[in-house]
Design a protein around this nucleic acid. Structure first.
Lengths: 232, 232
DNA sequence: GAGAATTTATTAAGCTTTTATTAAGGCATC
DNA sequence: GATGCCTTAATAAAAGCTTAATAAATTCTC
């Protein structure tokens, strides 16, 4: 059976355009121009995916996103205008799965829709596990699944190792984690094959990228003789 | 069985909203508007998590937090208004696991609740062991996990060795611990390679930092010929 | 009770350990 | 083979620990 997709946008042209392209791919499309209609549709239909414009008159797309997440966990893609970076992040934290910046190429949107549906069907993971996929703390947002990291609404490009370290610290924020523990959790038992200075260097890179300093760290704090921690 | 969550906030709307969202996620929610009710609930129910507002009339959320920690180790999330940063620190040292700043997005709260519950269940170490994570005595609070130490609500910066010594004394408060025993517990069997004066010096530093004097010690008392103890 | 012996306190300087910084080389991936 | 990432190593800086010398307090001995 064809997947059912909801598109909500008060700019009629955009909603129509998206609907057209999706129908062309044999999806069943529900098109709404207002938040009110959208809410009705969410309740009545069994959807497989939703595309929401962030800026809507009345209720914002984020609120709709929230409403959906109260009862469903199918993928949600947010549409954002350039410069609405803030909302984009909040959207992810609230449970959106992807976002597309306007203006966009219709085919790109179609591609993302398919990607999300594929993922949704393959890994239909329980709600709890999905929640874990986003770590958030004091302006820092880590999306484990997409491997994205944002700092104060701006993308923070991290290398794989840096990402792992920051992730471990965030998952146990507050707790002091020793270099050795970090090592074991990232490289397994190869600890002694590597100089224990490696972690230090990665920490430095992280601090640099985050605009943090050793003397007065906002994020990664050194606990002498013990390890590192993210101050809550 | 559904996890049991306590929410305490004198602002009814907030407590109600939180309760609503949590119930929606199939949690069993106990809602309290006053500290008094909260204390009753803590005693009577077997909870899995507590959400406490820091500002409450009568008793503060911090005190409730402390009360809970006297007997339980389940996660505690504090609700704080913007600018209450100081309390935040105290809260953590007292054993809170996370805090959320008002105003917050309900779904974010739900996410954090789930994250804490998962962590709690994953590392569900035996009750006794977790108890030890927070030591408290006469205005002195030691949080082993975060390696923080507070004296009369103010941070007390300790070096690793000082922290270890104070921790050992606190863990066995009342009991006299000899220098030799301290040595063995901190440095293993290297005792005889080091002058036995080392401990003395560390004790002095501790007393200095704690505003304690040798003649009339409030915290670390010398027991002549035996060792040191923390007077109960 | 006086003085010796023992234990603890005080102090500050030198030493060791730990962490930070920097840059270069190596490894892998594309 | 060019790029980016990881590791290493060498050096610097910071922080903490120990030592040793001296002073004070307590206990022991006579």
């Amino acid at each position: 059976m064809a997947d059912k997709i909801l598109i909500v946008d008060d700019e009629k042209e955009i909603a129509d355009l998206v609907a057209l392209f999706l129908e062309n791919e044999n999806f069943t499309v529900f098109k709404c121009y207002t938040a009110k209609d959208a809410l009705t549709c969410i309740e009545k239909e069994t959807l497989d995916l939703a595309i929401l414009d962030i800026m809507l008159p009345g209720m914002s797309g984020l609120q709709i996103c929230q409403k959906i997440r109260e009862n469903h966990r199918y993928p949600i893609i947010m549409l954002t205008a350039k410069g609405e970076a803030t909302d984009k992040i909040t959207g992810l934290a609230l449970g959106a799965d992807d976002y597309i910046t306007k203006p966009f190429l219709p085919l790109e949107l179609v591609a993302r829709v398919k990607a999300q549906l594929r993922r949704y069907k393959r890994y239909n993971t329980p709600e709890e596990e999905r929640q874990e996929e986003i770590l958030e703390h004091a302006g820092l947002v880590m999306n484990i699944r997409t491997h994205e990291c944002l700092l104060n609404e701006k993308p923070l490009p991290l290398t794989p190792t840096e990402f792992s370290i920051l992730r471990i610290l965030c998952e146990q924020k507050g707790k002091v984690v020793s270099s050795e523990e970090l090592f074991h959790r990232i490289w397994g038992d190869e600890y002694f094959s590597k100089s224990s200075n490696t972690i230090t260097v990665h920490i430095r890179h992280l601090r640099e990228k985050m605009g943090d300093s050793f003397e007065e760290p906002k994020y990664i704090k050194t606990v002498w003789g013990c390890g590192y921690k993210i101050e809550i």
